[in-house]
């Protein structure tokens, strides 16, 4: 008999659950188990990990004969630029402390790059509108305590 994965998405989902279960069990080994009557901090997570590994295994094995639709391609462009936009906001407003206006501008411009329909002018215009809007709502309206620029 030849084994062939009929459902890629189920196979990998199963592997993912097995992985998470394994991490849970291994990490929870450092926590006292206790007994059923006096559960230690390791008790609940260890059993959850075991259950999840069993489920993951069943899901993976079932993928050998239950047919799936396959996994669609990853949209790397969107993933990359949106992640960058998000991370940049945290970096600029917290670590660099450059102020609200610059941080928001960065989020907008980097986000718009994620779309295939990107235009520079539109991006800048949108940034201007959104900076104005967010400053009005969050800084003036809700009085969030962020400086507008780095000098104050």
């Amino acid at each position: 008999m030849q084994l062939k994965i009929k459902s890629q998405e189920d196979f990998w989902a199963g592997i993912m659950f097995i992985g998470f279960g394994l991490v849970a069990i291994v990490v929870a080994r450092d926590y006292p188990m206790g007994t059923a009557m006096r559960m230690g901090p390791g008790y609940f997570p260890t059993y959850l990990g075991v259950i999840m590994m069993v489920m993951g295994a069943i899901i993976s094995i079932r993928s050998l004969w239950v047919k799936g639709e396959g996994i669609r391609r990853f949209g790397w462009r969107g993933l990359f630029f949106l992640s960058l936009a998000f991370a940049t906001y945290g970096f600029l407003i917290d670590t660099m402390d450059v102020g609200f206006i610059l941080s928001i501008t960065a989020v907008v411009i980097l986000s718009t790059l994620a779309s295939r329909e990107f235009h520079w002018l539109e991006s800048l215009g949108l940034a201007a509108v959104l900076v104005l809007g967010t400053v009005a709502v969050f800084i003036w309206g809700l009085e969030m305590p962020y400086p507008l620029f780095w000098w104050r």
Binding site: F86, V107, V108
Partner: peptide, 12 residues
């Protein structure tokens, strides 16, 4: 394409 950058801002 004009909506999602706004959502990103609000989320951040």
């Amino acid at each position: 394409r004009m909506l999602f950058p706004a959502i990103m801002c609000f989320m951040a």
